[in-house]
Amino acid sequence: MIEMKKVFKLYSNGVTALNGVDASISQGDFVYVVGPSGAGKTSFIKMMYREELPSKGQVYINGVELSSLKHKEIPFLRRDVGVIFQDFKLLPRKTVYENVAFALEVIEENPRKIRRRVMDVLDKVGIKHKARFIPAQLSGGEQQRVSIARAIINNPKLVIADEPTGNLDPDTSWEIMKIFDEINSSGTTVIMATHSKDIVNQMKKRVIAMENGQIVRDEQRGEYGYEA
């Protein structure tokens, strides 16, 4: 599903975020991306939804080389990719329902189908009863559930999460991880950058460890491997 071949990323400030990265991730994988701050994790995952382009090398999604995409083609790529952020990135003046529905409205989906799909997804993440609330009325865990609902509303083949439990307490973090596990069980690929040692060690998924812009470890049923 995802192939990276000799990927380098050099920023204008002189920082080399990725230094010759090779990686292969198959459909249905659940992958944790770990490593110290500044290791290149965020640049690595941003390559997968074309938020960043490599300075050198190639990134493929389902056989399509992302650098070759025209600007007008990028939204079609991202319909198959759901992205979840640590700080949620919800629209503050829109309700929970409106935040999630927006992802379908921009592709001009049928309004009746939008309502049915939004309510189904809100139910799946356990926040259907808060559909008419705005983000400021929700806890951090509830806001993250909304961002997950928004990310999976299009039934993406790939879900990418950048520190999705970073601002949450341990109990809420585990509730969120159960949702990710269920998403993965349905066949969706999940790639998650995280500093959560306990979650990585207990869930025993594939672990890609990065240091200084390079992959230094890639193991099935891996462990975090760093001090938290």
Score class of each variant (00 low, 15 high):
190 V>W: 00
45 I>H: 05
5 K>L: 06
188 T>N: 04
225 G>F: 11
210 M>G: 03
69 L>V: 05
222 G>W: 05
228 A>K: 14
115 R>Q: 10
184 N>V: 02
181 D>T: 13
78 R>A: 10
97 Y>A: 11
134 I>Y: 11
1 M>K: 12
200 V>K: 02
155 N>G: 07
102 F>L: 12
52 E>N: 13
189 T>E: 01
104 L>C: 12
151 A>L: 09
114 I>H: 02
74 I>S: 08
56 K>Y: 04
106 V>Y: 14
71 H>Q: 14
40 G>I: 01
134 I>A: 07
105 E>D: 09
101 A>R: 05
126 G>P: 07
13 N>Y: 07
171 D>I: 14
105 E>S: 09
85 F>I: 13
28 G>E: 05
89 K>D: 12
210 M>Q: 03
126 G>H: 06
180 F>I: 03
180 F>K: 02
96 V>I: 11
202 Q>D: 15
142 E>F: 06
32 Y>W: 08
63 G>M: 06
23 A>K: 00
194 T>N: 03
82 G>I: 03
198 D>I: 14
21 V>E: 00
224 Y>I: 13
179 I>E: 03
179 I>G: 02
21 V>A: 01
109 E>C: 13
107 I>K: 08
22 D>K: 01
4 M>E: 01
131 A>F: 12
217 R>L: 12
8 F>C: 02
203 M>C: 11
158 L>C: 05
54 P>G: 03
70 K>G: 13
69 L>F: 04
68 S>M: 08
60 Y>I: 00
177 M>G: 00
204 K>L: 14
144 Q>L: 14
43 S>C: 06
144 Q>N: 09
24 S>V: 12
181 D>S: 12
26 S>T: 13
52 E>T: 10
49 Y>H: 15
168 L>W: 06
132 R>D: 15
161 A>I: 02
96 V>T: 11
25 I>H: 01
206 R>P: 03
207 V>H: 03
92 P>W: 10
96 V>D: 07
51 E>M: 15
107 I>E: 10
125 V>T: 05
32 Y>R: 06
140 G>K: 09
98 E>V: 08
189 T>N: 01
35 G>I: 00
135 P>V: 04
92 P>K: 09
12 S>N: 14
18 L>I: 00
